[in-house]
Write a protein that binds this DNA or RNA. Structure first.
Length: 559
RNA sequence: AGACCUAUGGUGUAAUCGGUAACACACCAGUUUUUGGUUCUGGCAUUCUAGGUUCGAGUCCUAGUAGGUCUACCA
Protein backbone atom coordinates (compact mmCIF):
# COMPACT_ATOMS: atom_id res chain seq x y z
CA UNK A 1 0.00 0.00 0.00
CA UNK A 2 1.05 3.52 -0.63
CA UNK A 3 2.43 5.12 2.46
CA UNK A 4 2.62 8.70 1.37
CA UNK A 5 3.16 11.18 4.13
CA UNK A 6 0.93 14.14 3.57
CA UNK A 7 1.91 17.36 5.20
CA UNK A 8 -0.59 19.08 7.45
CA UNK A 9 -1.49 22.72 7.01
CA UNK A 10 -0.96 24.98 9.98
CA UNK A 11 -4.50 24.60 11.28
CA UNK A 12 -4.39 20.82 10.95
CA UNK A 13 -1.15 20.87 12.90
CA UNK A 14 -2.83 22.71 15.74
CA UNK A 15 -5.77 20.32 15.73
CA UNK A 16 -3.48 17.30 15.51
CA UNK A 17 -1.51 18.55 18.49
CA UNK A 18 -4.64 19.37 20.52
CA UNK A 19 -5.93 15.88 19.95
CA UNK A 20 -2.59 14.26 20.76
CA UNK A 21 -2.13 16.02 24.07
CA UNK A 22 -5.75 15.39 24.95
CA UNK A 23 -6.84 19.01 25.04
CA UNK A 24 -9.93 17.85 23.18
CA UNK A 25 -11.35 14.38 22.77
CA UNK A 26 -12.85 15.38 19.45
CA UNK A 27 -13.25 18.65 17.66
CA UNK A 28 -16.16 20.84 16.65
CA UNK A 29 -15.91 23.51 13.98
CA UNK A 30 -18.55 25.69 12.41
CA UNK A 31 -19.39 27.50 9.23
CA UNK A 32 -21.12 30.75 10.19
CA UNK A 33 -22.57 32.59 7.17
CA UNK A 34 -24.70 35.66 7.57
CA UNK A 35 -27.91 35.00 5.62
CA UNK A 36 -27.71 38.24 3.72
CA UNK A 37 -26.41 37.11 0.34
CA UNK A 38 -25.36 34.23 -1.84
CA UNK A 39 -22.34 32.05 -1.18
CA UNK A 40 -19.43 32.54 -3.56
CA UNK A 41 -16.09 30.97 -4.42
CA UNK A 42 -14.50 32.68 -1.42
CA UNK A 43 -16.93 30.99 0.94
CA UNK A 44 -16.13 27.57 -0.48
CA UNK A 45 -12.69 27.81 1.03
CA UNK A 46 -14.11 28.40 4.51
CA UNK A 47 -16.61 25.61 3.96
CA UNK A 48 -13.96 23.16 2.78
CA UNK A 49 -11.62 24.03 5.64
CA UNK A 50 -14.23 23.77 8.37
CA UNK A 51 -15.98 20.66 7.12
CA UNK A 52 -12.78 19.18 5.73
CA UNK A 53 -10.93 19.22 9.02
CA UNK A 54 -13.65 17.32 10.88
CA UNK A 55 -13.87 14.83 8.01
CA UNK A 56 -10.17 14.27 8.40
CA UNK A 57 -9.79 14.26 12.18
CA UNK A 58 -13.26 13.21 13.23
CA UNK A 59 -15.76 15.48 14.93
CA UNK A 60 -18.60 17.59 13.68
CA UNK A 61 -19.13 20.88 11.92
CA UNK A 62 -22.10 23.04 12.77
CA UNK A 63 -23.87 25.20 10.26
CA UNK A 64 -24.75 28.39 12.08
CA UNK A 65 -26.50 31.35 10.61
CA UNK A 66 -25.04 34.49 12.09
CA UNK A 67 -28.26 36.45 12.02
CA UNK A 68 -27.83 39.43 14.31
CA UNK A 69 -28.73 42.15 11.82
CA UNK A 70 -32.43 41.71 11.03
CA UNK A 71 -32.51 44.53 8.51
CA UNK A 72 -30.33 42.68 6.05
CA UNK A 73 -31.15 39.04 6.58
CA UNK A 74 -33.85 36.74 5.31
CA UNK A 75 -35.01 33.14 5.15
CA UNK A 76 -34.58 33.16 1.39
CA UNK A 77 -30.84 33.44 1.87
CA UNK A 78 -30.88 30.75 4.55
CA UNK A 79 -32.38 28.32 2.08
CA UNK A 80 -30.03 29.25 -0.74
CA UNK A 81 -27.02 28.81 1.54
CA UNK A 82 -28.20 25.40 2.73
CA UNK A 83 -28.72 24.26 -0.83
CA UNK A 84 -25.22 25.31 -1.87
CA UNK A 85 -23.46 23.61 1.04
CA UNK A 86 -25.43 20.45 0.47
CA UNK A 87 -24.59 20.54 -3.22
CA UNK A 88 -20.91 20.81 -2.38
CA UNK A 89 -21.41 17.57 -0.53
CA UNK A 90 -21.05 18.56 3.12
CA UNK A 91 -23.22 17.38 5.97
CA UNK A 92 -24.01 19.54 8.98
CA UNK A 93 -26.10 16.91 10.72
CA UNK A 94 -29.67 17.01 11.91
CA UNK A 95 -29.89 20.58 13.07
CA UNK A 96 -28.81 23.93 11.87
CA UNK A 97 -27.97 26.58 14.39
CA UNK A 98 -28.89 30.23 14.55
CA UNK A 99 -27.26 32.96 16.56
CA UNK A 100 -30.78 34.28 17.03
CA UNK A 101 -31.56 31.16 19.08
CA UNK A 102 -29.10 32.47 21.63
CA UNK A 103 -30.53 35.98 21.98
CA UNK A 104 -31.83 35.19 25.46
CA UNK A 105 -28.55 33.76 26.61
CA UNK A 106 -26.60 36.58 25.00
CA UNK A 107 -28.77 39.06 26.89
CA UNK A 108 -27.95 37.26 30.14
CA UNK A 109 -24.26 37.38 29.28
CA UNK A 110 -24.55 41.14 28.84
CA UNK A 111 -26.30 41.50 32.19
CA UNK A 112 -23.49 39.56 33.83
CA UNK A 113 -20.95 41.87 32.27
CA UNK A 114 -22.83 44.90 33.59
CA UNK A 115 -23.08 43.42 37.07
CA UNK A 116 -19.36 42.70 37.09
CA UNK A 117 -18.61 46.26 36.04
CA UNK A 118 -17.45 45.33 32.56
CA UNK A 119 -20.12 47.08 30.53
CA UNK A 120 -22.05 50.32 30.58
CA UNK A 121 -24.82 52.13 28.77
CA UNK A 122 -23.60 55.01 26.66
CA UNK A 123 -25.90 57.85 25.58
CA UNK A 124 -23.31 59.37 23.27
CA UNK A 125 -24.16 59.81 19.61
CA UNK A 126 -22.24 57.76 17.07
CA UNK A 127 -20.30 60.91 16.13
CA UNK A 128 -19.31 61.46 19.73
CA UNK A 129 -18.26 57.87 20.07
CA UNK A 130 -16.15 58.07 16.93
CA UNK A 131 -14.53 61.12 18.49
CA UNK A 132 -13.87 59.25 21.72
CA UNK A 133 -12.35 56.37 19.85
CA UNK A 134 -9.31 58.32 18.67
CA UNK A 135 -7.27 56.75 15.91
CA UNK A 136 -4.14 54.72 15.30
CA UNK A 137 -1.86 57.44 16.58
CA UNK A 138 -4.19 59.15 19.00
CA UNK A 139 -5.40 57.59 22.23
CA UNK A 140 -9.13 57.44 22.89
CA UNK A 141 -10.95 59.29 25.62
CA UNK A 142 -13.45 57.99 28.13
CA UNK A 143 -17.12 58.50 27.54
CA UNK A 144 -18.82 60.78 30.10
CA UNK A 145 -21.22 57.88 30.76
CA UNK A 146 -18.49 55.38 31.45
CA UNK A 147 -18.86 55.46 35.22
CA UNK A 148 -22.58 54.99 35.60
CA UNK A 149 -23.57 52.79 38.49
CA UNK A 150 -24.31 49.13 37.96
CA UNK A 151 -27.92 49.76 39.01
CA UNK A 152 -28.43 52.53 36.48
CA UNK A 153 -26.82 50.44 33.72
CA UNK A 154 -29.02 47.49 34.57
CA UNK A 155 -32.11 49.65 34.56
CA UNK A 156 -31.26 51.34 31.29
CA UNK A 157 -30.37 48.05 29.60
CA UNK A 158 -33.68 46.55 30.68
CA UNK A 159 -35.49 49.55 29.27
CA UNK A 160 -33.54 49.34 26.01
CA UNK A 161 -34.76 45.78 25.75
CA UNK A 162 -38.30 46.85 26.56
CA UNK A 163 -38.29 49.27 23.67
CA UNK A 164 -38.35 52.50 25.64
CA UNK A 165 -35.58 54.08 23.60
CA UNK A 166 -35.31 54.87 19.95
CA UNK A 167 -32.83 53.46 17.45
CA UNK A 168 -29.43 55.00 17.93
CA UNK A 169 -30.18 56.68 21.19
CA UNK A 170 -28.25 54.37 23.49
CA UNK A 171 -25.83 51.46 23.26
CA UNK A 172 -24.25 48.99 25.63
CA UNK A 173 -20.45 49.15 25.53
CA UNK A 174 -17.85 46.86 27.00
CA UNK A 175 -15.65 48.69 29.50
CA UNK A 176 -12.13 47.80 28.46
CA UNK A 177 -9.52 50.44 27.74
CA UNK A 178 -9.91 53.61 25.68
CA UNK A 179 -6.15 53.85 25.28
CA UNK A 180 -5.65 50.32 24.05
CA UNK A 181 -3.43 50.14 20.95
CA UNK A 182 -5.99 47.84 19.32
CA UNK A 183 -8.90 50.07 18.32
CA UNK A 184 -11.35 47.22 18.77
CA UNK A 185 -10.55 47.13 22.48
CA UNK A 186 -11.53 50.77 23.00
CA UNK A 187 -14.88 50.10 24.65
CA UNK A 188 -16.58 48.38 21.69
CA UNK A 189 -20.34 48.54 21.30
CA UNK A 190 -21.91 45.19 22.11
CA UNK A 191 -25.65 45.90 21.94
CA UNK A 192 -27.61 48.44 19.97
CA UNK A 193 -31.25 49.47 19.86
CA UNK A 194 -32.74 48.27 16.61
CA UNK A 195 -36.49 48.14 16.40
CA UNK A 196 -36.75 45.83 13.46
CA UNK A 197 -38.50 42.56 12.75
CA UNK A 198 -36.18 39.59 12.63
CA UNK A 199 -36.70 36.78 10.13
CA UNK A 200 -36.89 34.26 12.96
CA UNK A 201 -37.61 36.05 16.22
CA UNK A 202 -40.10 38.51 14.78
CA UNK A 203 -40.74 41.50 17.05
CA UNK A 204 -39.48 39.83 20.20
CA UNK A 205 -36.38 42.00 20.44
CA UNK A 206 -35.75 45.73 20.36
CA UNK A 207 -32.04 45.28 20.86
CA UNK A 208 -29.59 43.12 18.96
CA UNK A 209 -26.01 42.11 19.81
CA UNK A 210 -23.09 43.16 17.65
CA UNK A 211 -20.90 40.61 15.87
CA UNK A 212 -18.18 40.66 18.53
CA UNK A 213 -20.68 39.94 21.26
CA UNK A 214 -22.51 37.24 19.36
CA UNK A 215 -20.07 35.26 17.33
CA UNK A 216 -17.59 34.19 19.98
CA UNK A 217 -20.31 33.56 22.52
CA UNK A 218 -22.20 31.38 20.07
CA UNK A 219 -18.99 29.45 19.44
CA UNK A 220 -18.66 28.98 23.17
CA UNK A 221 -22.27 27.91 23.65
CA UNK A 222 -21.83 25.24 20.97
CA UNK A 223 -18.47 24.22 22.43
CA UNK A 224 -16.73 24.94 19.16
CA UNK A 225 -13.14 23.85 19.76
CA UNK A 226 -11.62 25.60 16.77
CA UNK A 227 -13.26 28.70 15.36
CA UNK A 228 -11.72 29.11 11.93
CA UNK A 229 -12.17 32.43 10.18
CA UNK A 230 -10.47 34.72 7.71
CA UNK A 231 -7.58 37.06 8.36
CA UNK A 232 -9.70 40.18 8.65
CA UNK A 233 -10.76 39.00 12.12
CA UNK A 234 -7.23 38.77 13.44
CA UNK A 235 -7.61 42.06 15.28
CA UNK A 236 -10.81 40.79 16.85
CA UNK A 237 -9.14 37.87 18.57
CA UNK A 238 -8.09 39.78 21.72
CA UNK A 239 -11.70 40.89 22.10
CA UNK A 240 -12.97 37.39 21.38
CA UNK A 241 -10.77 36.10 24.18
CA UNK A 242 -11.60 38.98 26.53
CA UNK A 243 -15.30 38.15 26.48
CA UNK A 244 -14.64 34.46 27.03
CA UNK A 245 -12.45 35.29 30.00
CA UNK A 246 -14.77 37.81 31.59
CA UNK A 247 -17.79 35.61 31.08
CA UNK A 248 -15.96 32.48 32.21
CA UNK A 249 -17.40 30.42 29.39
CA UNK A 250 -16.08 27.58 27.21
CA UNK A 251 -12.84 28.75 25.62
CA UNK A 252 -13.24 28.32 21.88
CA UNK A 253 -10.07 29.18 20.02
CA UNK A 254 -10.14 31.47 17.04
CA UNK A 255 -7.63 30.76 14.27
CA UNK A 256 -7.39 32.89 11.14
CA UNK A 257 -6.46 31.98 7.59
CA UNK A 258 -6.20 34.04 4.43
CA UNK A 259 -9.17 34.44 2.15
CA UNK A 260 -9.33 32.96 -1.32
CA UNK A 261 -8.89 35.39 -4.18
CA UNK A 262 -9.06 34.20 -7.76
CA UNK A 263 -7.95 36.13 -10.81
CA UNK A 264 -10.74 37.54 -12.98
CA UNK A 265 -13.21 37.04 -10.12
CA UNK A 266 -14.53 39.39 -7.47
CA UNK A 267 -16.18 38.41 -4.22
CA UNK A 268 -17.39 41.62 -2.66
CA UNK A 269 -21.13 41.41 -2.06
CA UNK A 270 -21.51 45.08 -2.81
CA UNK A 271 -19.78 44.79 -6.17
CA UNK A 272 -21.53 41.57 -7.09
CA UNK A 273 -24.83 43.28 -6.39
CA UNK A 274 -23.80 46.07 -8.72
CA UNK A 275 -23.30 43.55 -11.53
CA UNK A 276 -26.74 42.08 -10.91
CA UNK A 277 -28.56 45.36 -10.53
CA UNK A 278 -26.69 46.96 -13.38
CA UNK A 279 -27.87 44.18 -15.68
CA UNK A 280 -24.30 43.17 -16.49
CA UNK A 281 -25.34 39.64 -15.60
CA UNK A 282 -28.78 38.08 -15.51
CA UNK A 283 -28.90 37.22 -11.81
CA UNK A 284 -27.01 35.73 -8.88
CA UNK A 285 -26.86 32.38 -10.63
CA UNK A 286 -25.66 33.75 -13.95
CA UNK A 287 -22.92 31.35 -15.11
CA UNK A 288 -20.47 34.25 -15.19
CA UNK A 289 -20.93 34.94 -11.49
CA UNK A 290 -18.41 33.61 -8.95
CA UNK A 291 -21.31 32.45 -6.79
CA UNK A 292 -21.70 28.76 -6.07
CA UNK A 293 -25.07 28.84 -7.82
CA UNK A 294 -23.45 30.50 -10.84
CA UNK A 295 -20.64 27.97 -10.99
CA UNK A 296 -23.16 25.15 -10.66
CA UNK A 297 -25.26 26.49 -13.50
CA UNK A 298 -22.19 26.96 -15.64
CA UNK A 299 -21.37 23.30 -15.26
CA UNK A 300 -18.92 23.09 -12.38
CA UNK A 301 -18.99 19.90 -10.35
CA UNK A 302 -18.71 19.84 -6.56
CA UNK A 303 -15.66 17.61 -6.92
CA UNK A 304 -13.88 20.15 -9.09
CA UNK A 305 -14.51 22.97 -6.63
CA UNK A 306 -13.40 20.89 -3.68
CA UNK A 307 -10.24 19.78 -5.44
CA UNK A 308 -9.54 23.39 -6.25
CA UNK A 309 -9.85 24.45 -2.61
CA UNK A 310 -7.62 21.57 -1.69
CA UNK A 311 -4.93 22.63 -4.10
CA UNK A 312 -5.18 26.23 -3.02
CA UNK A 313 -4.07 25.25 0.46
CA UNK A 314 -4.40 26.98 3.81
CA UNK A 315 -2.00 29.65 5.01
CA UNK A 316 -1.97 33.19 6.37
CA UNK A 317 -0.58 34.71 3.18
CA UNK A 318 -2.75 36.77 0.92
CA UNK A 319 -3.35 34.58 -2.08
CA UNK A 320 -4.30 35.40 -5.65
CA UNK A 321 -4.91 32.14 -7.40
CA UNK A 322 -4.81 31.78 -11.17
CA UNK A 323 -8.31 31.06 -12.45
CA UNK A 324 -6.58 28.59 -14.78
CA UNK A 325 -6.17 26.26 -11.82
CA UNK A 326 -9.92 26.28 -11.17
CA UNK A 327 -10.57 25.55 -14.83
CA UNK A 328 -8.00 22.78 -14.89
CA UNK A 329 -9.61 21.14 -11.85
CA UNK A 330 -12.89 21.11 -13.76
CA UNK A 331 -11.33 19.62 -16.88
CA UNK A 332 -9.66 16.89 -14.88
CA UNK A 333 -12.92 15.89 -13.24
CA UNK A 334 -15.08 16.16 -16.35
CA UNK A 335 -12.53 14.37 -18.52
CA UNK A 336 -13.04 11.31 -16.33
CA UNK A 337 -16.78 11.59 -15.87
CA UNK A 338 -18.52 12.95 -18.95
CA UNK A 339 -19.71 11.36 -22.16
CA UNK A 340 -18.33 12.63 -25.44
CA UNK A 341 -20.89 14.06 -27.81
CA UNK A 342 -20.64 15.05 -31.47
CA UNK A 343 -21.36 18.72 -31.82
CA UNK A 344 -20.92 21.41 -34.43
CA UNK A 345 -21.08 24.95 -33.15
CA UNK A 346 -20.64 26.83 -36.43
CA UNK A 347 -21.78 24.42 -39.17
CA UNK A 348 -20.32 23.99 -42.63
CA UNK A 349 -22.09 21.55 -44.95
CA UNK A 350 -20.10 18.70 -46.45
CA UNK A 351 -21.51 16.62 -49.28
CA UNK A 352 -19.96 13.22 -49.79
CA UNK A 353 -20.61 12.87 -53.48
CA UNK A 354 -19.85 9.17 -53.84
CA UNK A 355 -21.98 8.11 -50.87
CA UNK A 356 -25.43 6.73 -51.74
CA UNK A 357 -28.19 9.31 -51.45
CA UNK A 358 -30.57 7.41 -49.20
CA UNK A 359 -28.11 5.39 -47.25
CA UNK A 360 -27.82 5.77 -43.46
CA UNK A 361 -25.29 3.85 -41.45
CA UNK A 362 -25.15 3.54 -37.67
CA UNK A 363 -21.61 4.21 -36.50
CA UNK A 364 -20.42 2.87 -33.20
CA UNK A 365 -18.73 5.40 -30.94
CA UNK A 366 -17.31 5.18 -27.44
CA UNK A 367 -19.16 7.18 -24.80
CA UNK A 368 -16.11 8.02 -22.75
CA UNK A 369 -12.68 6.59 -23.54
CA UNK A 370 -11.61 7.27 -19.93
CA UNK A 371 -14.11 4.81 -18.51
CA UNK A 372 -12.60 1.67 -17.01
CA UNK A 373 -14.99 -0.45 -19.04
CA UNK A 374 -15.89 1.63 -22.08
CA UNK A 375 -19.49 1.66 -23.26
CA UNK A 376 -20.72 2.46 -26.73
CA UNK A 377 -23.62 3.96 -28.62
CA UNK A 378 -24.30 4.54 -32.30
CA UNK A 379 -24.69 7.71 -34.30
CA UNK A 380 -26.19 8.01 -37.79
CA UNK A 381 -23.99 8.76 -40.79
CA UNK A 382 -25.27 9.89 -44.18
CA UNK A 383 -24.34 11.61 -47.44
CA UNK A 384 -24.69 15.14 -46.14
CA UNK A 385 -23.02 16.09 -42.91
CA UNK A 386 -21.90 19.20 -41.09
CA UNK A 387 -18.45 19.92 -39.80
CA UNK A 388 -17.05 22.90 -37.95
CA UNK A 389 -16.34 25.94 -40.14
CA UNK A 390 -12.94 26.22 -38.51
CA UNK A 391 -12.10 22.70 -39.69
CA UNK A 392 -11.90 23.76 -43.33
CA UNK A 393 -9.61 26.17 -45.11
CA UNK A 394 -9.35 27.00 -48.79
CA UNK A 395 -5.64 26.52 -48.48
CA UNK A 396 -3.64 24.80 -45.80
CA UNK A 397 -1.60 27.50 -44.03
CA UNK A 398 1.41 25.31 -43.23
CA UNK A 399 2.63 21.76 -42.82
CA UNK A 400 1.31 21.55 -39.28
CA UNK A 401 -2.27 22.03 -40.44
CA UNK A 402 -4.19 18.75 -40.07
CA UNK A 403 -7.69 19.69 -41.05
CA UNK A 404 -9.65 19.75 -44.26
CA UNK A 405 -8.57 21.62 -47.37
CA UNK A 406 -8.79 20.83 -51.10
CA UNK A 407 -6.78 17.70 -51.86
CA UNK A 408 -6.44 16.80 -48.17
CA UNK A 409 -7.78 13.76 -46.39
CA UNK A 410 -9.12 13.61 -42.84
CA UNK A 411 -10.78 10.98 -40.68
CA UNK A 412 -14.35 11.62 -39.66
CA UNK A 413 -14.38 10.46 -36.06
CA UNK A 414 -15.74 6.90 -35.79
CA UNK A 415 -16.70 6.96 -39.49
CA UNK A 416 -14.90 7.18 -42.83
CA UNK A 417 -11.86 8.92 -44.22
CA UNK A 418 -12.82 11.59 -46.71
CA UNK A 419 -10.93 13.62 -49.27
CA UNK A 420 -11.84 17.17 -50.19
CA UNK A 421 -12.31 17.69 -53.93
CA UNK A 422 -14.03 21.01 -54.20
CA UNK A 423 -15.91 23.75 -52.39
CA UNK A 424 -18.55 26.36 -53.13
CA UNK A 425 -17.79 29.92 -52.21
CA UNK A 426 -19.91 33.04 -52.20
CA UNK A 427 -17.61 35.37 -54.12
CA UNK A 428 -19.35 38.45 -52.72
CA UNK A 429 -18.94 37.66 -49.05
CA UNK A 430 -16.09 35.19 -49.23
CA UNK A 431 -18.18 32.75 -47.24
CA UNK A 432 -17.67 29.06 -47.87
CA UNK A 433 -21.13 27.65 -48.63
CA UNK A 434 -20.34 23.95 -48.80
CA UNK A 435 -17.55 21.49 -49.31
CA UNK A 436 -17.53 18.53 -51.64
CA UNK A 437 -15.75 15.36 -50.67
CA UNK A 438 -15.46 11.71 -51.57
CA UNK A 439 -15.17 8.93 -49.04
CA UNK A 440 -13.09 5.79 -49.04
CA UNK A 441 -15.50 2.93 -48.68
CA UNK A 442 -12.92 0.59 -47.15
CA UNK A 443 -11.86 3.08 -44.48
CA UNK A 444 -14.75 2.58 -42.10
CA UNK A 445 -13.73 3.02 -38.48
CA UNK A 446 -12.99 -0.33 -36.87
CA UNK A 447 -12.51 -2.14 -40.19
CA UNK A 448 -10.20 0.23 -42.02
CA UNK A 449 -8.40 -1.46 -44.88
CA UNK A 450 -7.56 1.64 -46.82
CA UNK A 451 -4.04 1.97 -45.55
CA UNK A 452 -4.50 5.73 -45.48
CA UNK A 453 -3.05 7.71 -42.60
CA UNK A 454 -4.87 11.01 -42.30
CA UNK A 455 -3.29 13.43 -39.85
CA UNK A 456 -6.50 14.89 -38.53
CA UNK A 457 -9.78 13.66 -37.13
CA UNK A 458 -12.91 15.81 -37.30
CA UNK A 459 -16.23 15.82 -35.51
CA UNK A 460 -19.37 15.75 -37.63
CA UNK A 461 -23.14 15.55 -37.47
CA UNK A 462 -25.45 13.98 -40.05
CA UNK A 463 -27.48 16.77 -41.62
CA UNK A 464 -30.68 14.79 -41.76
CA UNK A 465 -30.45 13.65 -38.14
CA UNK A 466 -29.00 16.74 -36.52
CA UNK A 467 -30.65 18.11 -33.40
CA UNK A 468 -30.71 21.88 -33.13
CA UNK A 469 -29.90 23.55 -29.85
CA UNK A 470 -28.66 26.80 -28.39
CA UNK A 471 -25.19 27.26 -26.99
CA UNK A 472 -24.13 29.94 -24.58
CA UNK A 473 -20.41 30.50 -24.69
CA UNK A 474 -19.18 32.18 -21.54
CA UNK A 475 -15.91 33.96 -21.18
CA UNK A 476 -14.31 35.76 -18.25
CA UNK A 477 -16.43 38.52 -16.78
CA UNK A 478 -13.48 40.91 -16.63
CA UNK A 479 -10.72 41.87 -18.99
CA UNK A 480 -8.27 42.35 -16.15
CA UNK A 481 -7.13 39.69 -13.65
CA UNK A 482 -7.54 42.03 -10.69
CA UNK A 483 -10.28 44.50 -11.61
CA UNK A 484 -10.63 45.86 -8.07
CA UNK A 485 -6.95 46.59 -7.63
CA UNK A 486 -6.65 49.66 -9.78
CA UNK A 487 -7.08 52.41 -7.26
CA UNK A 488 -7.80 55.08 -9.83
CA UNK A 489 -10.26 53.03 -11.87
CA UNK A 490 -13.59 51.49 -10.97
CA UNK A 491 -13.87 47.74 -11.44
CA UNK A 492 -16.81 48.29 -13.77
CA UNK A 493 -14.40 49.70 -16.33
CA UNK A 494 -12.95 46.22 -16.71
CA UNK A 495 -16.19 44.39 -17.44
CA UNK A 496 -15.67 42.19 -20.50
CA UNK A 497 -18.21 43.25 -23.15
CA UNK A 498 -17.89 39.83 -24.79
CA UNK A 499 -18.38 37.64 -21.75
CA UNK A 500 -21.33 35.88 -23.41
CA UNK A 501 -21.71 34.74 -27.00
CA UNK A 502 -25.00 33.09 -27.88
CA UNK A 503 -25.13 30.60 -30.73
CA UNK A 504 -28.86 30.14 -31.40
CA UNK A 505 -28.49 27.12 -33.65
CA UNK A 506 -25.79 24.58 -33.05
CA UNK A 507 -26.08 21.01 -34.37
CA UNK A 508 -25.81 17.89 -32.24
CA UNK A 509 -26.07 14.15 -32.58
CA UNK A 510 -29.53 12.76 -31.71
CA UNK A 511 -28.52 11.19 -28.38
CA UNK A 512 -28.52 14.61 -26.71
CA UNK A 513 -32.31 14.49 -26.61
CA UNK A 514 -31.94 12.19 -23.61
CA UNK A 515 -30.04 14.80 -21.65
CA UNK A 516 -31.63 16.58 -18.73
CA UNK A 517 -31.11 19.90 -17.01
CA UNK A 518 -27.80 19.97 -15.17
CA UNK A 519 -26.24 17.14 -17.20
CA UNK A 520 -22.67 17.68 -18.27
CA UNK A 521 -21.11 16.42 -21.49
CA UNK A 522 -18.01 16.97 -23.53
CA UNK A 523 -18.60 18.35 -27.00
CA UNK A 524 -15.78 16.53 -28.68
CA UNK A 525 -12.80 18.71 -29.56
CA UNK A 526 -14.68 21.77 -28.24
CA UNK A 527 -15.29 21.83 -24.51
CA UNK A 528 -17.46 20.80 -21.60
CA UNK A 529 -21.07 21.88 -21.61
CA UNK A 530 -23.97 21.73 -19.17
CA UNK A 531 -27.69 21.71 -19.88
CA UNK A 532 -29.13 25.03 -18.71
CA UNK A 533 -32.36 25.23 -16.69
CA UNK A 534 -33.77 27.54 -19.37
CA UNK A 535 -33.99 24.48 -21.64
CA UNK A 536 -37.42 23.34 -22.78
CA UNK A 537 -38.69 20.11 -24.31
CA UNK A 538 -38.33 21.64 -27.74
CA UNK A 539 -35.08 23.43 -27.26
CA UNK A 540 -32.03 22.40 -25.32
CA UNK A 541 -29.67 25.09 -24.13
CA UNK A 542 -26.05 24.27 -23.37
CA UNK A 543 -23.74 26.40 -21.25
CA UNK A 544 -20.05 26.16 -21.90
CA UNK A 545 -18.38 25.35 -18.59
CA UNK A 546 -14.84 25.39 -19.92
CA UNK A 547 -13.12 24.85 -23.24
CA UNK A 548 -10.82 21.96 -23.95
CA UNK A 549 -7.15 22.87 -24.01
CA UNK A 550 -6.41 24.06 -27.50
CA UNK A 551 -2.76 23.89 -28.50
CA UNK A 552 -3.60 24.57 -32.13
CA UNK A 553 -5.24 27.85 -31.20
CA UNK A 554 -2.15 28.69 -29.21
CA UNK A 555 0.13 27.94 -32.14
CA UNK A 556 -2.04 30.06 -34.42
CA UNK A 557 -2.14 32.95 -32.00
CA UNK A 558 1.62 33.06 -31.97
CA UNK A 559 1.97 33.38 -35.73
C1' A B 1 2.48 56.91 12.95
C1' G B 2 0.20 52.62 16.82
C1' A B 3 -1.25 47.38 17.26
C1' C B 4 -1.59 42.76 14.98
C1' C B 5 -0.16 39.66 10.79
C1' U B 6 2.61 38.02 6.32
C1' A B 7 7.14 37.48 3.12
C1' U B 8 9.93 30.52 -0.88
C1' G B 9 9.77 30.32 -9.03
C1' G B 10 4.89 33.71 -13.31
C1' U B 11 0.85 31.52 -9.60
C1' G B 12 -0.56 28.46 -5.28
C1' U B 13 1.49 25.33 -1.68
C1' A B 14 5.65 21.92 0.73
C1' A B 15 10.32 21.25 3.10
C1' U B 16 7.63 19.55 11.25
C1' C B 17 15.07 17.95 16.17
C1' G B 18 19.09 23.52 11.22
C1' G B 19 21.47 18.53 6.48
C1' U B 20 21.82 20.96 0.73
C1' A B 21 14.66 23.56 -2.24
C1' A B 22 9.56 19.20 -3.41
C1' C B 23 4.47 19.04 -5.65
C1' A B 24 0.59 21.28 -8.65
C1' C B 25 -0.98 25.06 -12.22
C1' A B 26 1.04 28.09 -16.12
C1' C B 27 4.89 28.29 -19.76
C1' C B 28 8.62 25.86 -23.25
C1' A B 29 10.41 21.34 -25.98
C1' G B 30 9.28 16.40 -27.17
C1' U B 31 6.09 11.51 -26.87
C1' U B 32 1.44 9.01 -27.51
C1' U B 33 -3.32 9.52 -29.63
C1' U B 34 -9.32 7.85 -34.78
C1' U B 35 -10.62 14.45 -29.72
C1' G B 36 -4.45 19.59 -31.88
C1' G B 37 -8.29 16.45 -25.69
C1' U B 38 -6.01 12.50 -22.67
C1' U B 39 -1.17 9.95 -21.57
C1' C B 40 4.02 10.11 -20.83
C1' U B 41 9.14 12.52 -20.77
C1' G B 42 12.37 16.62 -20.14
C1' G B 43 13.22 22.02 -19.15
C1' C B 44 12.03 26.24 -15.87
C1' A B 45 14.19 29.31 -8.01
C1' U B 46 21.37 31.44 -5.41
C1' U B 47 13.84 31.03 -0.47
C1' C B 48 12.44 40.12 0.40
C1' U B 49 17.44 42.75 1.68
C1' A B 50 21.97 43.28 4.65
C1' G B 51 24.83 41.44 8.42
C1' G B 52 25.73 37.37 12.04
C1' U B 53 25.90 32.15 14.51
C1' U B 54 27.24 27.21 12.39
C1' C B 55 31.05 22.10 9.23
C1' G B 56 26.14 23.28 7.19
C1' A B 57 20.62 28.32 7.37
C1' G B 58 14.35 28.76 3.62
C1' U B 59 14.53 27.20 8.81
C1' C B 60 18.20 30.34 14.42
C1' C B 61 19.88 35.79 15.88
C1' U B 62 20.14 41.30 14.69
C1' A B 63 18.74 45.42 11.73
C1' G B 64 16.05 46.93 7.69
C1' U B 65 12.43 46.72 3.45
C1' A B 66 7.72 45.54 1.27
C1' G B 67 2.63 44.12 1.67
C1' G B 68 -2.12 43.18 4.43
C1' U B 69 -5.85 44.31 8.44
C1' C B 70 -7.98 47.77 12.04
C1' U B 71 -10.33 54.19 13.48
C1' A B 72 -19.15 50.75 11.01
C1' C B 73 -24.91 51.32 16.33
C1' C B 74 -22.07 45.48 9.31
C1' A B 75 -20.51 40.49 9.67
Amino acid sequence: MEERKESLNFIEQIVDEDLKVGKHKSIITRFPPEPNGYLHIGHTKAICINFGITERFGGITNLRFDDTNPEKESTEYVNAIKRDIEWLGFDWGETEYYTSDYFGQLYDFAVKLIKDGYAYIDDSTSEEMAEQKGNVTQLGTNSPYRNRSVEENLDLFQRMKDGEFENGSRVLRAKIDMSHPNLLMRDPIIYRVKKAAHHRTGDAWNIYPMYDFAHGQSDSIEHITHSLCSLEFENHRPLYNWFIEKLGIFPSRQIEFSRMNVTYMITSKRRLLKLVEGGIVKGWDDPRMPTISGLRRKGYSPAAIRTFCDKAGVTKREQMIDIGLLEECLRQDLNKTTDRVMAVLKPLKVVISNYPTDKVEQMEIVNNPEEETPTYRTIPFSREIYIEQSDFMEEAPNRKYRRLAPGKIVRLKSAYIIECNDFVKDEETGEIKEVHCTYFENSRSGSDESGLKPKGTLGWVSAEHAVKAEARLYDRLFTDPTPTQHGDKDFMEFVNPNSLEILPEILLEPSVLEREIGDRVQFMRIGYFCVDPDSTKDKLIFNRAVTLKDTWAKVQAKS
